[in-house]
Amino acid sequence: MKLKFTQNIKFVIVLLLFPIFSNAEIKVKIYYELTSNGYEIFADNDEFCTVSVKINFTTTNLSIEGGNNKTYVIDSKRKKQHLTTLTEIKKGKAYKFSFQSNSNYGSVLDKEFDIDYVYDLPYKTHENYTVSQGYNGTFSHQNENSLDFLMPIGTEITAVRDGIVINLIDSNNKNCPTKDCMKFNNVILIYHSDNTFAEYAHLKLKGAKVKVGDKITKGQVIGLSGNVGWSTAAHLHLVIFKQGIEKRETLKTKFKTNEATIEFLNENKNYFRKY
């Protein structure tokens, strides 16, 4: 979405205070306030995690504080966070601006994360399931560090790490073996303290046991597995990732497989949870 604002010496064209939603699912509003010699740019973030917004301005007779095409990180549940100032350059001449933006969850400026964190298996004690597709799997995990656990529909899924639920979908009930059905995936998305995310996918219809904004503890039941979306069999798809503005970076993560063993999970291997 692109907006344009113009001011000359005698009057200002201000029709409405427009929000820009660069991603319809992300609840961020970018807006401006008029000053005596330009504009102040602000953002509201109604999400339960930080959000990154990259803004590209097109200006006439306005300088941009901090430079153009810059990424801003907006705090969670923050109102009126100041982003930048546009200031008139030559007095007495008309000035105007327009801008385009892209946004996504998390802080894309924070490159560090807890690489040594040990995750729990995503199911209850004394249960065991097979990793049917591992990191960079040949079916649907090419160039992606994600895991598929074969499990019957309705299996209780547990959180692999503490976090907060920032998004979920569990209203779908359709599946097929092609990528076209990705849009029907049921998912729970959880944000972690080190700016990483866990996505649990293919839940059954109405299978979420949490809601957006819930604080989650490791091992807590969060949903029920299913066979929904891009799926050929009942399973849980789990991926840990860092989010960029346009794409995610999926991560290989270590799991606790029993009281004494910490390891990366391997394809076609069964894992019994003893703890």
Score class of each variant (00 low, 15 high):
Gly229Val: 00
Ile222Ser: 03
Gly226Asp: 06
Gly229Glu: 07
Phe197Lys: 02
Leu203Tyr: 04
Gly226Pro: 06
Val228Ile: 12
Leu189Glu: 06
Ala208Met: 15
Val210Leu: 13
Asp162Cys: 04
Ile188Cys: 14
Val165Arg: 15
Val165Asn: 05
Gly207Cys: 03
Ile188Lys: 14
Val187Met: 15
Val210Thr: 08
His202Arg: 04
Asn172Glu: 10
Ile222His: 07
Gly219Asn: 01
Gly213Met: 04
His237Ser: 03
Ile188Met: 15
Leu203Arg: 09
Asn173Pro: 00
Asn173Gly: 02
Val165Phe: 05
Gly223Met: 01
Ile190Gly: 04
Lys204Phe: 01
Asn167Gln: 11
Val187Ile: 14
His202Thr: 00
His235Gln: 09
Lys183Leu: 06
His235Trp: 05
Thr232Leu: 02
Leu224Asn: 09
Lys209Cys: 14
Val228His: 04
Asn173Arg: 14
Phe184His: 14
His235Lys: 11
Lys211Gln: 06
Ala208Asn: 03
Thr178Lys: 08
Ser171His: 11
Tyr200Glu: 03
Ala201Ser: 15
Gly163Ile: 04
Ala233Met: 09
Ile166Ala: 01
Asn172His: 14
Lys209Tyr: 04
Val210Gln: 06
Ile188Gly: 15
Tyr191Arg: 13
His202Ala: 02
Ala201Met: 13
Leu203Gln: 10
Val221Glu: 09
Lys183His: 12
Ala201Ile: 11
Asn173Trp: 09
Lys179Glu: 14
Asp194Arg: 15
Lys215Glu: 11
Cys181His: 06
Val187His: 06
Tyr200Asn: 04
Asn173Thr: 11
Arg161Ser: 13
Ile188Asp: 05
Gly163Pro: 12
Gln220Thr: 01
Lys206Pro: 02
His237Glu: 00
Asn195Glu: 05
Asp170Gln: 00
Gly219Phe: 06
Ile166Trp: 02
Phe184Asp: 15
Cys181Met: 05
Asp194Asn: 08
His202Cys: 08
His192Val: 00
Val165Pro: 03
Ile190His: 07
Val212Ile: 14
Lys206Cys: 09
Ser231Pro: 07
Val239Cys: 13
Lys218Met: 04
Asn172Asp: 05
Val160Arg: 13
Asn175Gly: 01
Asp194Lys: 08
Glu199Met: 14
Asp170Glu: 06
Ile169Asn: 12
Ser193Asn: 09
Phe184Pro: 01
Leu236Lys: 07
Asp170Leu: 12
Phe184Ala: 05
Thr217Ser: 05
Ala234Trp: 08
Trp230Gly: 04
Phe184Met: 00
Lys218Val: 11
Glu199Pro: 01
Trp230Asn: 07
Gln220Val: 04
Ser225Trp: 03
Asp180Glu: 12
Asn186His: 01
